[in-house]
Amino acid sequence: MDALKSAGRALIRSPSLAKQSWGGGGRHRKLPENWTDTRETLLEGMLFSLKYLGMTLVEQPKGEELSAAAIKRIVATAKASGKKLQKVTLKVSPRGIILTDNLTNQLIENVSIYRISYCTADKMHDKVFAYIAQSQHNQSLECHAFLCTKRKMAQAVTLTVAQAFKVAFEFWQVSKEEKEKRDKASQEGGDVLGARQDCTPPLKSLVATGNLLDLEETAKAPLSTVSANTTNMDEVPRPQALSGSSVVWELDDGLDEAFSRLAQSRTNPQVLDTGLTAQDMHYAQCLSPVDWDKPDSSGTEQDDLFSF
């Protein structure tokens, strides 16, 4: 819950932080000083300027060897085509990944977070970031790969997607708890209302004896509580940590079903599988986004697919 609360507080303090972009060759504004600060901008989305290598189908939802083989196929196909790589912007948030063309600003792909089953910074092609997700059109699994400016960037994108998945799962947990509370309150309110109706004398007997209905007592009954809980029953509950912020979080049926399955089948359902080692994760978390744009010590960066 700490990640969720800190993310909400950060967004309320400075929503404009989320509009910064990394990996864009110096076009961005001043960047936060450390990885923790940038992680807090996830709610509205972190932007990464990358190059799209392509996509291939895979048979399993996750796995280092599986993704490595898929990336190898994608890279080989991209090299064989001889075409310049498409420059894209990857927007990562707890909602998922939005992929747009840098030149036309046209939407290429919009992947809900619950469809993503794996992401990684490839070991062999260490400047490549990739994720595996279920197609929104059918049940097939797709591996999408992107060329980053350097290994640090690939690791940073991988960690960002993993963190977005974690925050999304926490949102789901909060929403589920809130819905259970509202359902319980609604049920209790309905029981109270039913009890009051059972003990209320029939209207005919009131008229016969000349008694008047006590409207004041009726007004004191917990009807307002019942209506408050039943009027918006169809509205999706939102985490309290975000009250007053500009973010509107809505959970669709697909996300609810997917996270429910994860909660039942996995020990740590909030953790998205990645190909990063503990050492890689520690190294990337210690980086400032400013470091992502620094040239690798191995030599001059080449803006070309064939540089790796």
Rank of each mutant, 00 (worst) to 15 (best):
A3M: 12
L4G: 11
S6P: 12
G8L: 00
G8Y: 00
G8W: 00
R9I: 09
R9A: 12
R9L: 15
P15M: 07
P15I: 06
P15R: 13
S16Y: 09
S16I: 10
L17Q: 13
L17I: 11
A18W: 11
A18H: 08
K19V: 10
Q20H: 14
Q20S: 12
Q20G: 13
L31C: 10
L31P: 14
P32W: 13
E33T: 14
W35S: 08
T36E: 10
T36A: 04
E40S: 10
E40C: 04
L42G: 07
E44S: 10
M46W: 04
F48N: 00
L50M: 04
K51L: 01
L53S: 00
L53K: 01
M55K: 11
T56D: 01
L57R: 15
L57K: 06
V58L: 13
L66K: 02
A69I: 01
A70G: 07
I71Q: 00
R73Y: 08
R73N: 07
A78F: 08
A78I: 07
K84D: 01
Q86P: 11
L90K: 00
K91W: 02
V92S: 01
P94I: 08
R95I: 03
G96K: 07
N102L: 15
N102Y: 10
L107F: 11
I108D: 00
N110V: 13
V111C: 07
S112P: 01
R115G: 15
I116M: 05
S117L: 03
S117M: 15
Y118M: 03
A121W: 05
A121F: 01
M124D: 05
K127V: 00
V128P: 00
V128R: 00
A130N: 01
A130L: 01
Y131F: 04
I132C: 01
I132E: 00
Q134V: 15
Q136N: 13
N138G: 15
N138L: 09
S140R: 11
E142I: 10
C143G: 01
H144Y: 15
L147N: 03
C148P: 00
K150C: 06
K150M: 10
M153T: 15
A154T: 06
A154C: 05
A154I: 01
Q155K: 14
T158E: 02
T160Y: 12
A164S: 10
F165D: 05
K166L: 11
A168E: 04
F169Y: 14
F171D: 15
Q173F: 10
V174G: 08
E177D: 15
E178C: 10
K179S: 09
E180C: 09
D183W: 10
K184V: 11
K184L: 14
A185D: 13
E188M: 03
G189F: 03
G190M: 02
G190C: 01
D191H: 12
D191S: 06
A195M: 05
R196L: 08
R196M: 10
D198H: 12
C199D: 04
C199G: 09
P202H: 11
V207Q: 09
V207F: 03
A208V: 12
A208Y: 12
T209Q: 15
N211A: 10
L212W: 12
L215Y: 12
E216T: 09
E216G: 03
E216P: 11
A219V: 13
A219F: 07
K220I: 08
A221W: 07
P222I: 12
L223A: 15
T225E: 09
T225I: 04
V226G: 08
T230F: 11
N232C: 06
E235G: 12
E235F: 03
P237V: 07
P237M: 08
P237S: 13
R238I: 09
L242C: 03
S243L: 04
S243A: 15
G244D: 03
G244S: 13
S246L: 12
V247C: 14
W249R: 08
E250Q: 13
E250N: 05
L251F: 04
D252V: 04
D252G: 12
G254L: 08
D256I: 02
E257P: 06
F259R: 02
S260D: 05
R261H: 07
L262F: 02
A263G: 03
A263E: 07
S265N: 11
R266M: 03
P269D: 03
Q270P: 03
Q270N: 06
V271S: 09
V271C: 10
D273S: 03
D273N: 07
D273E: 08
L276A: 11
A278Y: 09
Q279E: 12
D280N: 07
Y283K: 11
Y283L: 13
C286T: 02
L287Q: 10
S288H: 04
P289I: 03
V290H: 08
D291G: 11
D291P: 10
D291K: 10
D291Q: 05
W292M: 13
W292H: 09
K294G: 06
D296W: 09
D303W: 04
D303V: 06
D303G: 07
D303K: 04
L305D: 08
